[in-house]
């Protein structure tokens, strides 16, 4: 009898691969090129939530620009978890970067007092847009480039506030799935209290991303990474993915294409910007 060599057991839900050292080196190069090379800006400003995405972004910025040129702004609202504020401080302390806390409660409530019936989703969007207002103003004050922190998973699932989280002109993590961001965080030495906790938008008590989304990040990432290659739902099911989860992910991706684009502009002339008049972003 000959020994039988079988292929490794195929786990359709194996997370998308990443070599964190390679990714980190590449992203540091990206940040230096965009800030120092293209714009001649030596400072960066990052909104620090206490979560893993903004922590990883902060770590990369410090590698690229040095700790004294990285401004990390905590922007709590009165209902924000104290643990988030604490975790954000861990990052500031670990990196030796410039820390600042701007409480957004008064700004948010200044508007929401006129909208007492606003539900959690609207309130969360107001908070997110207020944070971006603060970030851009700090950017002007400090001559610092705002750095985005959104990851690929939330971008694909539309799990972010349009014209808020996605607004900064550059984003190092936007092509990394959440599970890859976790890998990168471990490699960079982000405190485990941040890497290992359940991700949360921290807009309500006990809120978690995975509870909101209805699927674990690890499973969504595996589905997304195959779906984006062009596999149809029946092909994904044939490869071992759960049909209900595939449908959920497909629905979220296909319902949010608009969130990954600039506003739709009516074309009226032969010189419509970005339709006829085309120039690269770095031209």
């Amino acid at each position: 009898m000959l020994p039988v060599v079988d292929p490794p057991k195929r786990d359709p839900y194996a997370p998308p691969k990443i070599d964190p050292a390679v990714a980190a080196g590449w992203l540091v190069g990206f940040l230096r090129d965009e800030c120092l090379g293209r714009r001649g800006v030596e400072n960066a400003v990052v909104g620090l939530s206490g979560g893993v995405d903004s922590a990883v972004t902060a770590y990369l910025c410090v590698r690229a620009l040095g700790p004294r040129n990285v401004h990390l702004v905590r922007m709590p609202y009165r209902t924000s978890s104290p643990a988030s504020l604490h975790d954000a401080q861990l990052v500031i302390d670990a990196l030796g970067a410039v820390g600042r806390t701007v409480d957004i409660t008064a700004a948010v409530d200044g508007y929401l007092q006129f909208e007492p019936e606003a539900d959690a989703r609207r309130r969360g969007n107001v908070m997110a847009r207020t944070r971006m207002l603060v970030l851009f103003d700090q950017s002007a004050k400090l001559a610092a480039l705002p750095i985005g922190t959104g990851n690929k998973t939330e971008r694909l699932l539309g799990y972010f506030t349009w014209h808020a989280d996605d607004t900064p002109p550059i984003n190092p993590l936007g092509d990394l799935f959440k599970t890859q961001v976790w890998e990168l965080a471990r490699y960079l030495g982000v405190p485990s209290a941040i890497v290992d906790k359940a991700p949360s938008a921290d807009l309500e008590a006990n809120q978690t991303d995975e509870g909101d989304l209805g699927i674990r990040y690890a499973r969504a990432d595996a589905i997304l990474s195959s779906m984006l290659l062009g596999y149809r739902d029946e092909q994904l099911r044939a490869r071992g993915f759960d049909g209900a989860e595939v449908a959920l992910v497909r629905r979220r991706v296909e319902g949010t294409h608009w969130k990954r684009h600039l506003p739709t502009t009516a074309m009226l002339t032969n010189t419509a910007i970005n339709e006829f008049y085309l120039r690269p972003v770095d031209y």
Binding site: L2, P3, V4, V5, D6, P7, P8
Partner: peptide, 12 residues
């Protein structure tokens, strides 16, 4: 899947 170099075997 890939087999070792030296031994006879069946690779599925």
């Amino acid at each position: 899947v890939e087999a070792d170099a030296r031994e006879g075997c069946i690779v599925r």
